[in-house]
Structure formats: structure tokens, C-alpha cells
Amino acid sequence: MIKNNTTEDLLDPNKYQDNYEISPFSKEVCESLFRKLVLIRETEIKIANERKLNNIKGPVHLSAGQEAVSVGISENVKNSDYIFGNHRSHAHILSLGSPVDKLFAELIGRSTGLSKGYGGSMHLVDMDVGFMGSVPIVAGTVSMAVGAGFAISQRKSDSISIAYLGDGAVEEGVFHESLNLAKVNNLPVLFVVENNLFSSHMDIDKRQPSSFTSRFAKSNLIEYKIVDGNNVLDVLRCSKELIKNIRETKEPKFIEAITYRMFGHVDWREDIDVGTNRCEESLRKWKLRCPIKRFQNSLIEQNFFSESELDSIKLEIINALDYSWQKVTNDPLVDKKSLLNNVYFENK
């Protein structure tokens, strides 16, 4: 059943499309993973549609196709851990259990939103689940996750910090400084590169001499793993081991998850015309490596769930999302007079 695919094959959309072995994971764990994956996918589809209708006015960078990375990793995260995101963070924050209502509310400028309506899609925060913030300056939070590592190590707790970044972000100097700094100070940081092989319009072949960004972990003597980012169980397993190691040894670790985005760089379009090396044909192939479809097919094939059981879970989630969206459209907008609030935190 499981083909002998190599790491190099991760870059080939024709590979890694098959079902995979579910056992020894339990039915309960699988149901919870499946629910999260579907929740994120359907949330992104909903957001894409609302953006297209211009009900959401600001830009949205959607994570459809990349759900398995943060869903797998978040299984191993504790509430006391610190997570930092980037411009494409809907999946990160939802995978940690942040309420979807608050995400929706944020996207339409409601004071009930994750950032109280001040942030929109690109500036999200939910400290209740350990999510410290996402910002759209590429690589902007990587060094901050290292800083969280310092704070943790001063307190001698067993928490970790996580920096989520893309393959484009490794091109910024601060990424390299951060890896070195974390390593030389033995900080409990997990760097997660979601390598979707693109930085806005440009594919990685035109930007870097190798498609694997983990070469930088290697050069900083940081232990790393390259994983099929569209296989939620592989991500879960691999991050479980690395995170356990970080908690024990206080050493930084690095995961490179190879994945692909289903939508274009920003908003609802597919961007098959604006990119280099992104055409209808390649997108079609990559969609065959869909993290949800593969998980679902494997679950059905190995008799964990029937197709209709999974379909009804999906339907339940979609209905709940529609309800959430309707509900938050009645929430209050940010106060028009609050423009100058919060410029300074201390403001008597």
C-alpha cells in the first residue's frame, strides 16, 4: 500500500498521492484531526467566497492545502507554549483551537474579533491558545520566536516556542541570524518552514539553488526533519518527536513541511496566470495530493469511518460555519472614535 517515495519525490506532484497507514492512531484522534482539517479548509473556502463578494475588504492569504502542517503540529503543543505566525496564519490559529467566530469577526472589522477589529487577516492574535501574533512583514516574527525561547529558558520551564514561516522567509537575513542565535544559546525553539514552493508569484527554483530549505538547519547544526506536509499523521509523528526533544534538551529543532497552496498568493483566485511555473496542469496535480482527500480515503479504506460518516461531519462543519458567519455580521463594528486608542499601551 505504501509506496517507497523518497524525500526528493516530495517535490514531484505525481508522487505522494496514495493512501497511507492509519494505525496505530485511534479512531478518536483521527476524528479530531479530520474535524480540524475540514474546519480549516471550509473556513478558507468561506473566506475566499466572502472576499470575492467584497464582504471582506482587506487582503486574505489563504492556507487551503496547507492545513495538515499546523494541525499535525498543534497536537503536540501545550497551552503554555508560544506560537508566532506570518501573513498566512488562519490555519495556525485555528489549529490551536481559536474560535472561528472570532476569526470571522476580525476579517470584517468587528470589535469581537481576535484583534478587536484592529488587525484584519494579516494581524491575528489569541494569547489564550498561545498564539502571540502574526504579521505580514516576511520573516518578521522569526526572531521573536527566538526571543520567546530566551524568556522560556530564563524561567526554566519546559515550554517551547514555534516560528511558522514560509520558504520565502528563509531568504531574509534575519532568518539566518535567528537560527544561529537559537542554536548558540540552546533555546527551545521549533522553526517550521511551510515550504509551498512559492513566494508570491515566484517558484523556488528561481529564487534558491535548492528546493529544500532545511539545508540552513544543517549548516547551523540544528536537527531537522523533512516531512510530507500533506500527510497529517506524518507531521504529527515527526513534530511529536522533535517537540519532545526540545522540551527535554532545550535545543532548537527544525521541520520542513513540503506542501502547496490551493489558492493563489492572496485572495480567492488561483493565480495560474500570474506566477512563474504555476499553471492549471500543475495545480491539478498538486490537488491530487490534497491532505484531506488522502486522509479521508485512507480512513475509509482501512475501515475507520464510512464515507457517509465523514460526509456528515463535513456537512455539520459547513453548516456551523455558515451560522457563525451570519452571527458575526451582527456584531458591533470597531468604535469609529477609537482610532487613537492603543497607540500606546499605557494610556491613562
Binding site: 472589522g109 477609537s338 482610532l339 487613537l340 497607540v343
Partner: peptide
Amino acid sequence: LKECPAPSSGLLEENY
């Protein structure tokens, strides 16, 4: 310009 960062909310942008 008003002395604050650019807000994301369209409502606040109008004021900014």
C-alpha cells in the same frame, strides 16, 4: 496624518 499606525478596519481608515 493622525498620529497612529494605519488601522486595518475600513471604518477607522476613513478617519485616518
